[in-house]
Computed example of a mutant assay.
Amino acid sequence: MQKKPSHSYPRRPGPPQQVRIIGGDWKRTPLPVLDAFGLRPTPDRVRETVFNWINHQMDADWNQADVLDLFAGSGALGFEAASRGARSVTMVDTVGPVVRQLEQIKDKLKADKVKVLRADALAVARDLAQRGQRFDVIFLDPPYQQDFLSQALPLCAALLKEGGLVYAESGERLPFPEQQGDDMPDEVPEWLQGWELVRGDKAGMVYFHLLKLD
């Protein structure tokens, strides 16, 4: 039997890390980062930029926004959305210690509009689509170099409300022809077809993109 892929987070050396919520009701609240390889919370300055992009697209109307954070990790993206008033935030991760930490943070913040699921992100995406659930914003920040983004993004097409947005973070630039770089293709790969790049940028080794359906 073929082993089922998993976005696991083996331990990493070094002291514990933390990030901070940068806006909304819980502004400056620290979020601990689990001591694990592969768990890379979106840096504060990247989140600030991304949420500015999203605010511009949806006129900062978070009160009516339903949010899905498919590879939640530290919860930095999902809790940021909740802090800004999102109507609902569903966080998904498959790693037990990560999920327990997300639950602890949720309880500490009394984040009643946040739901935390321990489950396979791709399976959850398929299930939610079949049940007809739709979201205004979907965050995709999977472990790098495991090909999760190319599997998850096509599933998001059935999960977005009209005008919805997907934030996608990766270790390399998404291959849209309009992005700068000698290695950018003339045509997008199949898993990117149907998507439009709204904004894209790089910070250090992190490439981050805001997408919507064509």
Rank of each mutant, 00 (worst) to 15 (best):
E48A: 13
F71G: 04
A65Q: 14
F51L: 11
W62K: 08
A168E: 03
P97E: 07
V98K: 06
W53C: 12
D59Y: 05
Q104A: 15
L149R: 02
V137Y: 01
Q180T: 14
W191C: 12
I105Y: 00
K110V: 12
V98M: 06
S88H: 11
E187M: 07
D201P: 01
A129Q: 12
D69M: 07
Q17H: 02
M91G: 08
F71M: 07
R84D: 04
A119K: 13
G194Y: 00
E196T: 15
R20D: 03
L70C: 13
A111G: 08
E190R: 11
V89N: 08
V137D: 00
V188L: 06
S83P: 06
Q104G: 07
D61C: 12
V89W: 05
V33Y: 03
K3I: 15
M91D: 07
V95M: 01
G163F: 01
A121F: 02
D69P: 02
G85F: 08
G200T: 14
Q17R: 14
E190M: 04
E162F: 00
D120H: 06
V124R: 11
P32R: 05
Q18I: 03
F139Q: 01
G75M: 10
G14I: 08
V89P: 03
D93G: 05
V67N: 05
G194N: 08
A36R: 12
E169G: 04
L140W: 04
G23H: 01
E80G: 05
K4V: 15
T94C: 04
D214R: 14
V19D: 03
D112C: 01
D69H: 03
G23D: 07
P15W: 00
H7Y: 01
Q146G: 03
R40V: 12
L211E: 05
T49Q: 10
D93P: 04
I54V: 15
A65E: 04
Y167D: 03
R28S: 15
Q104I: 06
P43V: 13
R11H: 09
E162Q: 15
A119E: 12
P30E: 06
E103L: 13
K106A: 09
V98Y: 00
C156W: 01
G75Y: 02
L122F: 06
L39C: 10
G204L: 07
V67P: 00
D35M: 11
D127P: 00
H209V: 08
V114Q: 00
D35G: 11
D35V: 10
L128A: 14
